[in-house]
């Protein structure tokens, strides 16, 4: 749908897009999860997928993130040394390695993305240990560093995330994903379960981190304000299909599709 030209040129790498989604369709029997979705994503670009509940946003995200094989279409990812490769043709071992090193996945409910009964430090350090870091002191230093960067109190490094507030858990989940310096983050309603003031801080943090780290991200949200704040580009989905796409401001300020117009007009003006 959206073309590569829509992204800011300074983000495109010499090797083309970071991610290329090509005509992805996911059917659940008779029902449609998502249908015929295509877009490119470049290094450092944040793409929001918005739409009403049940419009196929999360289905699409799972297809792209290697968690649910599409019924048709391909998802190609720009591997560091091999260029664009269809992720569903990689071996399971490689796909899982990719998912826990070069990608991150932030769940709506932090309990889905955290090990709730091991300490915050171990949660953040897990990916480091998974890729073979065997030096406790170094793991701990890196962990503390990341906790600081997501504005968590490092004195709580040995506390279980179960004792953290929702916003802290969400920030911990983000730190846990960022510790391996991924190039691409998937976020499924990252702020939906938080109250408004915490949402604002988290969005601010995410925006800062994304630009600082040159992180590309795909953010699923039903909240157009989140899209406005975070995303360079926006896809609007309805009934499993992308009805409109383009630069975020352009789509939100001048919606073309009737459904987008409805969506934008239904938001209370902040």
């Amino acid at each position: 749908m959206a073309t590569a030209s829509a992204s800011a040129p300074e983000f495109s790498s010499t090797h083309g897009p970071l991610l290329r989604v090509n005509a992805v369709t996911r059917l659940y029997g008779e029902r449609t999860g998502c249908r015929n979705v295509s877009f490119d994503l470049h290094q450092g670009e944040v793409l929001a997928i918005a739409g009403e509940s049940g419009s196929g946003k999360t289905t699409l995200l799972n297809c792209i993130a290697g968690r649910s094989r599409p019924t048709a279409g391909t998802v190609e990812y720009n591997l560091r040394h091999e260029g664009l490769r269809d992720i569903y043709r990689l071996s399971e071992a490689r796909l899982r390695l990719l998912a826990r090193t070069d990608w991150g996945f932030v769940h709506q409910n932090p309990r889905d993305g955290l090990r709730i009964d091991v300490s915050a430090g171990a949660n953040v350090g897990e990916r480091l240990m998974a890729i073979g870091d065997r030096h406790y002191g170094r793991i701990r230093d890196t962990t503390g560093d990341w906790m600081r960067r997501v504005e968590l109190d490092t004195s709580r490094i040995d506390d279980a995330p179960a004792t953290f507030s929702g916003g802290m858990q969400q920030r911990l989940q983000i730190a846990r994903n960022l510790v391996t310096h991924p190039r691409l983050m998937f976020m499924d309603e990252p702020t939906a379960s938080l109250d408004v003031s915490v949402q604002a801080r988290l969005l601010d943090l995410l925006r800062g981190l994304a630009s600082e780290l040159g992180l590309a991200a795909i953010v699923v949200t039903h909240d157009l304000a989140v899209a406005r704040l975070l995303a360079h580009r926006l896809l609007i989905m309805k009934s499993g299909e992308v009805v409109e796409s383009g630069l975020t401001d352009q789509v939100l300020d001048d919606p073309q599709h009737p459904y987008t117009q409805l969506l934008v007009s239904s938001v209370l003006q902040a």
Binding site: R115, V118, S119, A122, G125, E126, M129, A130, I131, R134
Partner: peptide, 11 residues
């Protein structure tokens, strides 16, 4: 994928 075992030792 045995990183998890080290999580326990880390703890």
């Amino acid at each position: 994928e045995y990183g998890l075992m080290h999580v326990k030792l880390y703890e």
